[in-house]
């Protein structure tokens, strides 16, 4: 089915487009708006944004593939990014990742057996002074120990409805 925005989101999209001197400039914000609704950026989203901004689908696809935060594959309701860059690595980021892999029953790039978490490796997330850290959806969880990590994940899991 073709992708659509709600009337309210359509107003938001039009307001965003009006901020820029070119329609094309609204490409990233619109992709964000759509991905927040669908959870990922599939071909329908790309076609929708292309039509709305009078761009070719190839142009929009080229943008989508450039940026790591647009998910080209379906992801779980909670996307967990674990930072593995130097400042985090110096303070145990690898152990954090390994613990989650065990807990989720998947390796980085995969989705947990209960379907609630997708685990991805990230590069420096600008929280180096609070290392090690993870990002779950829009939120950062910092100064982690394994105990703290489990508490965070327990809490998020409890809030996430069952079913894939």
């Amino acid at each position: 089915m073709a992708f659509q925005l709600s009337p309210e989101q359509t107003r938001e999209a039009d307001e965003i487009i009006a901020r820029y001197p070119t329609k094309r400039a609204a490409c990233l914000p619109l992709l964000w708006l759509c991905q927040r609704q669908t959870g990922w950026t599939n071909d329908e989203v790309i076609a929708f944004v292309a039509e709305k901004l009078e761009l070719s689908t190839a142009a929009v696809k080229g943008v989508v593939t450039f940026y790591t935060m647009f998910h080209e594959k379906k992801v779980a309701p909670n996307v967990v990014w674990v930072c593995r860059t130097l400042s985090c690595e110096l303070r145990g980021a690898k152990a954090v990742q390994e613990h989650m892999e065990k807990r989720f029953g998947c390796s980085a790039g995969g989705t947990s057996t209960d379907g609630k978490f997708t685990l991805l490796k990230a590069e420096c997330l600008a929280a180096c002074g609070q290392a090690p850290m993870i990002q779950v959806n829009d939120d950062y969880y910092e100064d982690l120990t394994i105990e703290k990590l489990d508490a965070v994940l327990d809490q998020i899991a409890a809030k996430t409805p069952e079913g894939k």
Binding site: T85, L86, S87, E123, C124, A126, A127, C128, G129, Q130
Partner: peptide, 11 residues
Amino acid sequence: DESEPGTFKDR
């Protein structure tokens, strides 16, 4: 953009 590894001040 604050993406240079080790940098976390602008945030």
